[in-house]
Write a protein that binds this DNA or RNA. Structure first.
Length: 247
DNA sequence: ATCTATTCCTGGCTGC
DNA sequence: TGCAGCCAGGAATAGA
């Protein structure tokens, strides 16, 4: 499923290949970029926003197939939008109503935002109106990297640690061209490689690479959630400070 | 504010 | 070989 690293991979390739080319009726493509999980095409005075949902992909210069939903004929380049499950959305000139991008938000700001919220941290990370870019796979990977239990209340999370670990995970995933679980291919048809580096997602029952404990799968915020029960301990719920016993 | 359930959708899997 | 049933989940939505 395309999350930030996959969207970034797509945007970089399409920007390189399509920038400066004309699309009939829309003008010259000035750049392709990403924010959150969205891939955005800036034309002269119009903008196309792609939310890829679960299975949305772009492909350059291949024959349309049964899952092709849109065709964009640029000069000398044909861009297809394919989407098996049709959860993706392509919209023209629509306002982008999402929270700050996780890669560009200031760490202190991120930590402050967390301190105001009581929801389980994983549910908050998945909420694109709170912070954008992280989906189910990278939420699990980022929380593992930061050694934070997915159910820990956001206001009890070390926001600076979570931020820095998340940045490291996402940047490495971008370097690997994203994760291919089943459906993700970049616009040139290549798989991602970051799935080989997953440490918890899809590894239920396999040993934690830190401590050897079996990775657990649970459901959090209606999503399959993978974590190490030893490395990602849930602290005892907060309670009144114990009075020191007399004597 | 936050939760749950439901809807959208289809390929891939299980079990008979 | 076929087929029914279930599952995965991003995002929107309704209702508690």
């Amino acid at each position: 499923m395309p999350e930030l690293p996959e969207a970034e991979t797509i945007a970089r390739i399409l920007d390189k290949r399509l920038r400066g080319k004309t699309l009939a009726g829309r003008g010259v493509l000035r750049r392709v970029w990403r924010t959150g999980k969205c891939v955005i095409f800036d034309f002269d005075d119009q903008q196309l926003t792609a939310r890829l949902g679960m299975t949305g992909t772009f492909r350059l210069n291949v024959e349309p197939g049964i899952h092709t939903r849109q065709i964009f004929d640029f000069e000398n380049e044909r861009l297809l939008y394919n989407d098996i499950r049709k959860f993706g959305r392509l919209t023209w000139n629509s306002p982008l109503d999402i929270g700050p991008d996780i890669l560009t938000i200031d760490p202190t700001t991120f930590a402050e935002l967390l301190s105001n919220r009581s929801r389980p941290i994983k549910a908050l990370l998945l909420d694109q109106s709170f912070v954008s870019g992280i989906g189910n796979i990278y939420a699990d990977e980022c929380l593992f990297a930061a050694k934070i239990h997915p159910l820990l209340a956001a206001n009890r999370v070390d926001g600076l640690t979570l931020h820095s670990e998340s940045i490291a995970v996402l940047k490495e995933a971008i370097r690997c061209g994203g994760s291919t679980i089943s459906d993700f291919f970049d616009p040139l048809g290549r798989s991602g490689r970051y799935q080989e580096k997953h440490r918890v997602y899809g590894r239920e029952g396999k040993p934690c690479q830190n401590c050897g404990t079996a990775i657990v799968r649970a459901v959090v915020a209606q999503r399959g959630t993978h974590y190490c029960p030893e490395c990602q301990l849930l602290p005892r719920p907060g309670r009144q400070k114990q009075r020191a016993p007399h004597r």
